[in-house]
Design a protein around this nucleic acid. Structure first.
Ligand SMILES: [Mn+2]
Ligand SMILES: [Mn+2]
Ligand SMILES: [Mn+2]
Ligand SMILES: [Mn+2]
Lengths: 231, 231
DNA sequence: TGATTTATTTTGACTAATCAAAATACCGGC
DNA sequence: GCCGGTATTTTGATTAGTCAAAATAAATCA
């Protein structure tokens, strides 16, 4: 007795939710086929496990499995995935802005909470936080209607030299990197410019706006920091 | 490689946490043996399932199983159970006081969240809420140190006639009863008195303090409302 | 005491999720 | 068109948690 009309709420286990969410993160557009190995790596399971699970998800109509080629979300799977991602990012925002938690710790916390909060709590959190567009790391929060407005940005590794830019997003969510970024004041909102790039050395020099303080950063790290033109 | 010293955090699944929490609720003192059937009923599983699970918990040192007599928490099991109960009741308090949710709905919500929040989030919620002693239903919140101060109260069914009393706790957590109680202003803090008791009819008449409004209540319902002398 | 009822435990089977390791398909190079 | 390497799938086994139904123990009644 399976239901699949629009009104029926899918009852997904947290394992299923995690598979769908990671598929969304690995192919935001929803068209690209995600290779099984990439999905398995993201979920930290062996490839065989991912294959088995994906076939089950395909039976439920949540994903499309092209054997040996890859897997992608169906519209229904995407709907569920967007809702989980919205919970994840709103929870992170709550933890940082209301509970004042360290932004380096909230990802792991939200990894659990995203499966435990109801849609009603989600809505109320959203209202309490003033309907934020992005989470503390600058990651866009899917709208209630399932729109994920994901722009393409330059990074500190690619932006124009000596042009003032503002940090909009940190793409490396690991506690280590976030801790490091915070210590150097590299957070969404920070205005700065790249004073110099030394490609052979793989280094670049930063200058904070309205301050003479300088800092240097590796090209690899710089590539994880998305920016937009300031002002 | 099992650890069981004080510093080691037990890694309990949410199933295990639910078993331990319900054992605590069924025998707050921690001495009484809980019959297997009572535990199974509370968890909504068949008795055989409870027996199997209890034997596993006994192997982990979380409960003491006296075959055919019943089961009770060990000190270690009680420690875990108190922490889960603290999470449950602080989450309920947060949902009502901060997110303004209906007090009839928060129990089911907290049933999931109690397994998803970390001890750090717990502490921060506690601070945000001003270290509350009781949840919205008047249920006592175990302290961080694991003290559960559970007083013995009179109920509206047993308290002195025509003496002004204050509601301190509603023991029936079902949405239906809580909804009903709210509609009649029967919430912790409410001051009132029992104007009359008609035992044969199983009815009693209430009079709200500072108002001439009267209401009648069944004895069964009245027994679920705990009160203390007002003032 | 013996029979009947009730509570508990045991047994066997099932589902979801996982891993290890073997089998298979596909790729690029020659 | 075969060969070796890589990615994927398949197979078989394991763990946590559950139920149905049979077996057993204990309590109650005659
Ligand atoms: Mn998760
Ligand atoms: Mn984030
Ligand atoms: Mn629970
Ligand atoms: Mn409560």
């Amino acid at each position: 007795m399976r239901r699949s009309d629009a009104s029926a709420q899918i009852v997904a286990t947290s394992t299923v939710e995690n598979y769908l969410k990671h598929l969304l993160l690995l192919a935001e557009d929803g068209e690209t086929l995600v290779p099984m190995g990439a999905l398995a790596a993201a979920l930290e399971v062996v490839p065989g496990t991912a294959t088995t699970m994906v076939k089950a998800l395909a039976d439920e109509g949540l994903v499309l499995h092209r054997p040996r080629l890859g897997v992608r979300l169906t519209p229904e799977g995407r709907r569920v995935a967007l809702n989980v991602l919205r919970k994840h990012r709103l929870v992170e925002t709550f933890l940082v802005h209301v509970l004042k938690m360290d932004w380096a710790k909230v990802h792991d916390e939200a990894e659990q909470l995203e499966h435990a909060i109801s849609d009603e709590v989600l809505d109320r959190l959203d209202a309490l936080l003033g309907h934020p567009q992005t989470d503390p790391h600058g990651d866009p929060i899917p709208s209630r209607q399932g729109k994920l407005h994901s722009q393409v940005y330059a990074t500190l590794a690619t932006c124009t030299l000596d042009r003032s830019v503002r940090i909009v997003r940190i793409t490396d969510q690991s506690p280590e990197f976030l801790q490091f970024a915070e210590q150097h004041g590299l957070q969404p909102g920070t205005a700065l410019r790249v004073a110099d790039r030394n490609l052979p050395a793989g280094l670049l020099a930063l200058r904070r706006s309205g301050s003479s303080a300088a800092a240097s950063l590796s090209l690899v790290a710089a590539g994880k920091i998305l920016v937009e033109p300031a002002r």
